[in-house]
């Protein structure tokens, strides 16, 4: 009898690239949870998030980041946020806490996450991203769900780099778009 075992694999195979002052790296240790609630439940959900994770339900387009920066909540819609954290932080206790505060779905397998950094990162992103990413406009506390070359994406700033999330179903096409943009950077 064949003993087949399934093991998780990153959507982009742990992709890494350094070119022309730009570093692109797939984040393979990120977990994503979607939380949704009714408008009337926001206050109690907020209390639950505050006590369990030290974050709040952010406004649309904003992030809430825990004091130690280990948990980030992305305000994507008025009734939906994404909680992004490190795989090592996910415990049964945390899952129970999330499930208790709002409608919670595990979305980690649905999203590929790329981090782009380096002095020329803006040159890559200005070819692809329709959002104004100027440091004075798009700060650490902003997030945007948008489309890049017609592909769905989420972007936020993480210190000196940008994090791009895209559905795994089209992640290879998204990566190809990023690679093509990098070729235009001197």
């Amino acid at each position: 009898m064949v003993n087949n075992r399934l093991s998780p694999r990153p959507a982009l195979g742990g992709y890494e690239l350094t070119h022309a002052g730009i570093q692109v790296k797939e984040r393979v240790d990120t977990e994503v949870f979607s939380l949704a609630c009714r408008e009337s439940e926001k206050a109690s959900v907020n209390d639950g998030l505050q006590s369990s994770l030290g974050v709040v339900w952010p406004e649309v387009g904003s992030c809430s980041v825990s004091t130690d920066s280990s948990v980030r909540v992305l305000g994507l819609q008025r009734d939906q946020v994404f909680v992004v954290l490190n795989s090592s932080q996910v415990t049964d206790g945390l899952l129970n806490a999330l499930t208790n505060v709002a409608w919670c779905t595990q979305q980690s397998d649905s999203w590929a996450t790329l981090e782009i950094s380096g002095p020329n990162q803006y040159q890559v992103l200005e070819c692809t991203c329709p959002i104004d990413l100027s440091p004075s406009v798009f700060t650490e506390h902003h997030v945007a769900r948008t489309s890049m070359e017609h592909l769905s994406s989420i972007i936020y700033r993480n210190n000196d780099s940008f994090v791009l999330m895209t559905p795994t179903s089209s992640a290879r096409g998204f990566l190809h778009m990023i690679e093509e943009s990098i070729q235009f950077v001197d």
């Binding site: 406004e59 649309v60 387009g61 008025r78 329709p130 945007a144 948008t146 489309s147």
Partner: peptide, 10 residues
């Protein structure tokens, strides 16, 4: 109203 100027392509 919530997000400011966004491209019509979105």
């Amino acid at each position: 109203p919530l997000l400011g100027l966004r491209d019509a392509a979105e």
